[in-house]
């Protein structure tokens, strides 16, 4: 299934600002096949979050096109985009963004409430339980969000992102707000769960070790694609060598 493309970007540009313009992305063209774990790396301000938000249908590009499962996101209006996000995408952000008014289980169920517009059925609730159990929060199911630790909160967010069985998981520094040890555990878990379900995932990370565990690494510099590495194919050491190198190797970015 080498050419089963889930995501495609064509000449995506993003310019911020009205009076003072700032271009954050330059002509980004790339494809992501189904099932891939792609790590986005790059220095601060290089445009990683900007790119991820555009892919996540949270923001629109200034020019260029984004296709997910063949759907051109530009053809959807705001409410359709909202439904698209709900149905096909799972988000995990740096901060958990859970609703403190609801307990852990309810937070996990929110995507289903939004989607079905009615009380979740038994099946969905069982799935929510299963996911909470899977992220190790069996005892915290009915706890208020504010009573959970940072790591536990982020795990609830992971369970929530997975509830609607998304086609694409988008994670922006999902452990950026956690201490290293907790962060590693959460990442480990996320990687495992992703592998089990074979879901496509794009993760922005500053963590070199985490990136090296991905199928593919893309490095952004100043809003442009710079490097592309397949660490599982060429081996960790070779990959690290390329990443440390200053020169870009962008010419083969669209090979799979």
């Amino acid at each position: 299934m080498a050419d089963d493309i889930l995501l495609e970007l064509r000449q995506v540009n993003k310019v911020y600002g009205q009076l003072v313009k700032y271009q954050a992305l330059f002509d980004i063209t790339m494809k992501v096949p189904r099932g891939q774990f792609l790590a986005l790396i790059g220095p601060s301000g290089s445009g990683k979050s900007t790119l991820l938000n555009i892919v996540g249908a949270l923001d629109r590009p200034t020019s260029g096109e984004v296709f997910i499962q063949g759907v051109n996101l530009a053809s959807l209006d705001d409410d359709e985009l909202a439904r698209f996000r709900n149905q096909f995408l799972g988000f995990i952000f740096q901060f958990h963004y859970l609703l403190p008014e609801f307990n852990a289980l309810e937070n996990v169920l929110i995507p289903s409430w939004i989607a079905t517009r009615r009380k979740p059925g038994k099946e969905i609730i069982e799935r929510a339980y299963f996911l909470l159990k899977r992220v190790g929060l069996e005892k915290e199911v009915y706890k208020k969000i504010s009573l959970l630790s940072g790591g536990q909160q982020q795990r609830v967010a992971i369970a929530r992102a997975l509830l609607n069985s998304p086609t694409l998981i988008l994670a922006d520094e999902p452990t950026g707000a956690l201490d290293t040890k907790t962060g590693d555990q959460v990442l480990e878990l996320l990687a495992e769960i992703r592998k089990e379900s074979g879901t496509t995932m794009i993760m922005v990370t500053h963590n070199r070790d985490v990136a090296l565990r991905a199928d593919r690494i893309i490095e952004l510099i100043d809003g442009q694609l710079c490097k592309e590495v397949y660490p599982q194919r060429i081996g960790k050491e070779e990959a690290e060598k390329i990443l440390e190198d200053h020169a870009c190797n962008i010419e083969n970015v669209n090979t799979l």
């Binding site: 698209f84 149905q87 988000f91 963004y97 989607a115």
Partner: peptide, 13 residues
């Protein structure tokens, strides 16, 4: 925050 995240995960206007 809550409204932002609700919108992000698919709540319509």
């Amino acid at each position: 925050r809550e409204i932002g995240i609700l919108k992000a995960i698919g709540t319509t206007n």
